[in-house]
Simulated assay, not measured.
Amino acid sequence: MTGLVGVGGGFLIIPALVVLSKLPMKEAVGTSLVIIAAKSLIGFFGEGGENGIN
């Protein structure tokens, strides 16, 4: 969802984790950072093959 609307992951992920998963705010923020880091790494390495940056 965050990729479709072009906003930062925390904008939608943190409220969803707090409300839907009933996580405490600190755990939701940490989980959000892990999710965003994983998405960034996947995007970085995925684009590297197309641009010859391996």
Rank of each mutant, 00 (worst) to 15 (best):
F11S: 06
G10C: 15
E27L: 10
A28I: 03
P15K: 02
L12N: 01
G3V: 11
I53A: 05
L41A: 14
G9M: 07
I35N: 05
E50K: 01
I53H: 08
G8P: 10
I42G: 12
G52S: 11
V18F: 01
I36K: 07
G43N: 10
G43D: 11
G30R: 03
K39D: 14
P15R: 02
I36G: 04
E50S: 03
N54I: 09
K22M: 02
G43P: 01
I13Y: 11
V7G: 01
I14F: 01
T31W: 00
L4T: 05
G46V: 03
L12E: 03
V7Y: 04
E50N: 00
S21E: 15
A37R: 04
A16Q: 03
I14L: 10
I13H: 07
N51R: 09
S32N: 13
V29R: 07
L20T: 04
G46A: 06
G6L: 12
I13E: 08
G43F: 15
G3A: 08
E50T: 03
F11R: 12
E47D: 09
A16F: 06
V29F: 07
L20Q: 06
V5S: 10
S21Y: 07
E50I: 09
T2H: 11
L33W: 07
A28R: 01
A28L: 04
K39R: 13
G48E: 06
E47P: 00
G10M: 15
L41M: 15
A28V: 02
V29L: 10
G6N: 12
E47A: 12
A28G: 06
S21R: 12
N51V: 14
V29S: 06
P15A: 04
I36M: 12
I14Y: 00
G6M: 12
A16Y: 15
E27T: 05
G30V: 13
I42E: 13
I53V: 09
L41V: 13
K26F: 09
F11C: 09
V18M: 05
E27V: 07
V19C: 02
L23D: 01
I13N: 03
V34Y: 02
G6K: 07
P15I: 02
L17M: 12
S32Q: 13
K39T: 15
L33Q: 12
K39I: 14
E50P: 00
G48V: 08
L33Y: 10
I14V: 14
L23Q: 05
L23A: 06
L20R: 02
L33A: 14
S32C: 15
F45E: 10
V34H: 01
T2I: 12
E27Y: 04
G9P: 09
G8D: 11
G6H: 04
G49S: 03
G46E: 03
G8W: 06
F44K: 13
F44H: 06
G9H: 08
G52A: 14
I35Y: 14
A38L: 14
G10N: 15
T31M: 00
L23I: 02
A37P: 04
V29D: 04
A16W: 08
V29W: 02
